[in-house]
């Protein structure tokens, strides 16, 4: 399953206006911990199923993407934020095991109902 590579201009449509909860990974290609957690990230869409969608925002891709991440309060990579109808309900910062990452996301998604 492919993961949408979000651009600055897509945020409103894909996150703020989404009826489905959204998990956003803020990452970049020079971030070693992002590389380390990549296989976990690639497995997330299957684990999330219909409950939430996963998108990625590369903070190095453009200045607009970077500014967006900064505006959203991101200070380290990787950061995962969970949004319900555009409202952030929590975040996970740094390297985590698949179990911990999924467990925390599951808990945060409970805030969406």
């Amino acid at each position: 399953m492919s993961i949408l590579d979000l651009r600055y201009a897509d945020w409103d449509r894909e996150v703020d206006s989404s009826n489905t909860p959204v998990v956003v990974e803020f990452w970049h290609q020079s971030c070693p911990l992002c590389k380390k957690i990549e296989s976990t990230v690639m497995g997330l869409p299957t684990k999330l199923g219909e409950r939430a969608k996963l998108v990625r925002l590369n903070v190095m891709d453009s200045r607009e993407n970077r500014r967006l991440a900064i505006d959203k309060g991101v200070v380290g990579t990787p950061t995962f934020k969970v949004y319900c109808r555009g409202v952030e309900v929590g975040e996970i910062v740094g390297l985590e095991t698949t179990e911990n990452l999924m467990g925390t996301i599951e808990n945060l998604l409970k805030n969406c109902s």
């Binding site: 971030c31 070693p32 970077r66 900064i70 380290g76």
Partner: peptide, 12 residues
Amino acid sequence: FVCATCDALLYE
């Protein structure tokens, strides 16, 4: 943080 290489750009 401990790694500027990783996260310096987020401190713009």
